[in-house]
Computed example of a mutant assay.
Amino acid sequence: MNATVKVWDPLVRVFHWSLVLCFAVAWASADDWQDLHEIAGYTAATLIAFRLIWGLFGPRYARFRQFVRDPKVVAGYLSDMLKGREARYLGHNPAGGIMVVALLLGMGLLTLTGWLYTDLLWGEEWVEESHELLANLMLMLAGLHVAGVVLASVRHRESLVKSMITGRERVPGEADVN
């Protein structure tokens, strides 16, 4: 058995899987169960607010400053990925970090447009269309996120899904970025 180290704290893991659930419920209930759709949306908005706070004050791997990197670093990492020689990171790699930002921003805008449409601008077609467009973009981002997780899991021979359940990753080697 490989030695592991704690990376993901329980609140990050609960946040992650709760947001996945909220998005899935909201997506599935969008046309048929308005009350459930709204509950999922407001819950997602609350989760995002929590994550923004936790990204500033939480433990090391939860903090934005640990994984939000300069665009040049992200571009270099993506280039290395295409060549099959990207480094293994403990926590989010540069591509994962930018994906976290994109997902939080997208979900934030999605919940904002949902709230606007429900409470302030009911019947405004542009708000409804913006909300639907953002939902489709989020589905696309979620697919890219899952693809990135699968790719990193295969390349680095460790299950990132399992680490988001247990909170633990393989102890870093010499070439890994901590």
Results as ranks from 00 to 15, higher is better:
Ala3Val: 14
Thr4Leu: 08
Lys6Gly: 12
Trp8Glu: 11
Trp8Gly: 01
Asp9Lys: 04
Leu11Pro: 09
Leu11Phe: 08
Val12Ala: 08
Val12Asp: 03
Arg13Ala: 00
Arg13Asn: 09
Val14Met: 14
Val14Tyr: 02
Val14Leu: 15
Phe15Met: 03
Phe15His: 06
Trp17Pro: 06
Ser18Leu: 08
Leu19Lys: 00
Val20Ala: 11
Val20Ser: 01
Cys22Tyr: 01
Phe23Lys: 05
Phe23Met: 02
Ala24Pro: 04
Ala28Trp: 02
Ala28Gly: 14
Ala28Gln: 10
Ala28Leu: 08
Ala30Met: 06
Asp31Val: 10
Asp32Ser: 11
Ile39Gln: 05
Ala40Asn: 08
Thr46Val: 14
Leu47Asp: 06
Arg51Asp: 00
Trp54Cys: 04
Phe57Thr: 13
Arg60Ser: 05
Arg60Ile: 12
Phe64Cys: 07
Phe64Gly: 04
Arg65Gly: 15
Gln66Ser: 15
Gln66Gly: 09
Gln66Asn: 15
Gln66Glu: 14
Arg69Trp: 06
Val73Phe: 00
Val74Thr: 10
Ala75Phe: 05
Ala75Tyr: 02
Ala75Ile: 02
Gly76Glu: 04
Tyr77Ser: 10
Leu78Arg: 12
Met81Lys: 11
Gly84Leu: 07
Glu86Phe: 07
Ala87His: 08
Leu90Cys: 11
Leu90Ala: 07
His92Glu: 04
Pro94Arg: 07
Ala95Asp: 00
Ala95Arg: 02
Gly96Phe: 01
Gly97Cys: 00
Met99Ile: 05
Val100Trp: 05
Val101Ala: 11
Ala102Gly: 03
Leu103Phe: 00
Leu104His: 05
Leu104Met: 04
Leu105Ser: 13
Leu105His: 03
Gly106Gln: 02
Thr111Val: 09
Leu112His: 07
Trp115Val: 03
Tyr117Leu: 12
Thr118Ala: 13
Asp119Ile: 15
Gly123Asn: 02
Glu125Asp: 13
Trp126Ile: 08
Glu129Thr: 13
Glu129Val: 12
Ser130Met: 14
His131Ala: 10
His131Val: 02
Glu132Met: 12
Leu133Val: 10
Leu133Ser: 12
Leu133Met: 09
Asn136Ile: 12
Met138Arg: 12
Met140Cys: 14
Leu141Lys: 08
Ala142Asp: 10
Val146Leu: 05
Val146Asp: 04
Ala147Trp: 01
Ala147Glu: 13
Ala147Met: 05
Val149Ala: 06
Val150Ser: 10
Leu151Phe: 13
Ala152Glu: 14
Ala152Val: 07
Val154Ile: 12
Val154Met: 11
Arg155Cys: 03
His156Trp: 15
Arg157His: 15
Arg157Met: 15
Arg157Val: 13
Ser159His: 07
Leu160Phe: 06
Val161Asn: 05
Lys162Ala: 11
Ser163Thr: 13
Ser163Arg: 07
Met164His: 01
Met164Trp: 00
Glu174Gly: 14
Asp176Val: 01
